[in-house]
Design a protein around this nucleic acid. Structure first.
Lengths: 158, 158
DNA sequence: TCTTTTTCCCATCGGATAGGTAGGAATTAA
DNA sequence: TTAATTCCTACCTATCCGATGGGAAAAAGA
């Protein structure tokens, strides 16, 4: 299960993505994220109500994780460092929740040796690697852009 | 990530599966699990070293979950209620760790409404349902039998 | 009947983690 | 100078994870 951190992160990111895509559209500037339109925490909380302080720590994590940039002071806030298409959901989850794999011994980014089994012949290892791959097939393919897409062109936000 | 409970469960189950399959093979009795060959906790711990007391609670969970049967007293122990082919890994995980889905609002067996989003238009909901399906494609298909299979006919256990 | 071996049940416990809060320093724009 | 913002450190509380202890109940064998 995703932690609250990851869930809130996706909420906040969906706001940033929608703004980012809208700006690109109106400015007809498909390349490189601009640094001029940061969104403040208080702004994000207005759109998706949640604890301001908690969101603060989450956005800091996303910044340290290389997904967001920030601008301090009046008019400051956070912005996407890359095009939404270029940040897979897997990256967000790894930053906030750690490993995606169901076992440390099959994790790609957080590997830890399994001390009481031989990985080459361990049935569980092999099966959980399958599960990991099934997850990654979705989470590395889907990106922040997909967060903002609504199937039937519905208007409400989420 | 799987809990230790689930990991230990799979270890213990792999012992039961191997015994079960071996017995079926030598007795040439393909139908219905026999009730005459229970394996005790102390026996399982000898094969896969772990806390006896902890394994006790795990096996009790598996029994309540409908996977194992038990026999008390001298010569007693636990045994599979069904053919190993007929217990998907998903069932084991649900008993010990709860939901497989990454969010309660996309869980099939542990569904909980998502109070601050409209599921019909929530981008995250839709994406996490994809993740859930990718997981289930493996975990409902693979069974206890797959736990006991070693790819290259290696001899060591795991 | 008595003893041994087992499952079964209930209570507890220490440490870690999740989720969230508090207070203030540093930076920036107006 | 002031107001708005990010940034940083520390803390807090409740829950859960992993594990243990002490028996009661059942069954088999001597």
């Amino acid at each position: 299960m995703l932690s609250k951190k990851a869930q809130y992160a996706f909420r906040a990111l969906s706001t940033l993505v929608r703004r980012d895509l809208a700006r690109r559209n109106e400015q007809n500037a498909p390349e490189s994220s601009a640094f001029d339109a940061p969104t403040s925490i208080s702004n994000m909380v207005q759109i998706h109500p949640m604890s301001t302080k908690f969101l603060e720590t989450i956005l800091l994590d996303l910044k340290r994780g290389g997904i967001l940039g920030s601008k301090k002071g009046k008019g400051g806030g956070y912005y996407l460092l890359k095009h939404p298409d270029d940040t897979p959901l897997a990256q967000v989850i790894r930053i906030l929740d750690g490993p995606i794999a169901p076992l440390p011994c099959v994790s790609l980014h957080f590997y830890e040796r399994c001390h009481d089994c031989n990985e080459a012949v361990c049935g569980l290892n092999r099966l959980m690697a399958e599960v990991r791959d099934a997850n990654l097939a979705v989470l590395e393919q889907r990106t922040l852009s997909d967060l903002a897409v609504h199937p039937e062109g519905a208007a409400a936000s989420a």
